[in-house]
Design a protein around this nucleic acid. Structure first.
Lengths: 199, 199
DNA sequence: TGTACATCAGTGAACGCGCGTTCACTGATGTAC
DNA sequence: TGTACATCAGTGAACGCGCGTTCACTGATGTAC
């Protein structure tokens, strides 16, 4: 209709990013701008008051997704009894809740290959967000140096993302959930059997 | 132009599947039918003499991709000295060649989330092809029973697929390749340190 | 505090474009005799 | 082996549709005095 206050604009912007972050994780990055806007009761034309183009939205949505999940995992780690922080992270990441709700969980398990296919400039920014994610979470991993903890982070998180993605390909629900439990047991045994991942 | 011999038709069909298998792995499953056909010097209309719709092509292309990679990994395993078959599989899967050539390697590392988003009937058939892939390769994994070997297969292959996908998100070439080497060392040490994966 | 004007968030029609699918048509291949 | 006819692989125009992006317009918000 007409001009909105600066606060309203900021809220609309945040809502666009939030809804896009969910829609991209559920349906892939091909989700249309019109879909995102109409779900907020807006029309597609207004989109360009907030973003120069769709790539911009993808970068913000993926970044938001990573921050959101880092928040969740950090919260789980900090609530866990001493010495069990990493186990709590693994249990949270490889949960039924994650398997069943792609829209509010790890973007790597739903969009990693699409991220890898983005043009250079976009990929650089996605990569940057991923580095932030790693820097926030690698402190929970075992290792004497930052480099060692980063190494363990990459192995664990790429493995768990692959596990969720693989489980989601399975068409039988029971099999999918059984396999998830198996993955969980494996990663707990391999990465968190000796209490070593405390903050 | 006009009608072709039965042999010609079979060859055209195979070429469509082959080219689609490469294009889907490179650019995602949104690659158009027109692109696939024109790359073979054909026009889009003829596509429907070979497939009832695009889903059919996706199923055949993914199946072909999995068979192709299973062939490669089996060949590597069988060429390896006794007791090093699994190490050969891991070295082949986590190779620079794989990282750099999505078009002729693992479809899980490039399309897993898109496969998971397919409608039920399609997903069931993709899942079936994945089960075949598992049955062909799990004999190289350690374990006393089929179930145990299948379990190890799932952990190793979902982990390695996640590793390739994660490495490809990195925008810096050197970092990507360093991280791949790190993944390779990790999976070799964890799954193939004790010779146990012989055929 | 009140007024006049510039700004700009959001609207909705329009743009060019590419998609999956259909279909009348063509002419070489396959087949029945 | 030769002929007549049916089949059908491939063509290319056409279909409806949805996409990302642009733009003239609207009217409430923000601001200068």
């Amino acid at each position: 209709m007409a001009r909105r206050s600066a606060a309203d604009k900021a809220e609309t912007h945040a809502q666009i990013v939030q809804h896009a972050a969910e829609a991209f994780r559920t349906h892939g990055s091909a989700v249309g701008i019109g879909d995102v806007m109409s779900n907020l009761g807006l029309t597609h034309g207004g989109f360009y008051r907030h973003f120069t183009n769709k790539d911009e939205l993808l970068v913000e949505a993926v970044t938001k997704s990573l921050v959101e999940v880092a928040d969740k995992l950090e919260r789980a780690a900090e609530k866990a009894p001493p010495g069990t922080a990493l186990a709590a992270i693994i249990n949270t990441y490889l949960s039924l809740e994650h398997l069943r709700h792609p829209e509010s969980w790890c973007v790597l398990a739903t969009l990693a290959p699409e991220m890898a296919r983005q043009p250079g400039a976009v990929r650089k920014r996605l990569d940057g967000a991923l580095q932030q994610y790693m820097h926030r979470l690698s402190r929970f991993l075992p290792g004497a140096t930052d480099a060692e903890r980063a190494k363990h982070f990459l192995v664990l998180f790429s493995g768990m993302a692959g596990a969720i993605a693989m489980a989601r390909v399975m068409s039988d629900k029971d099999m999918r959930e059984q396999i998830l439990a198996m993955f969980r047991a494996y990663y707990l045994a391999t990465f968190a059997s000796t209490p070593s991942g405390g903050a």
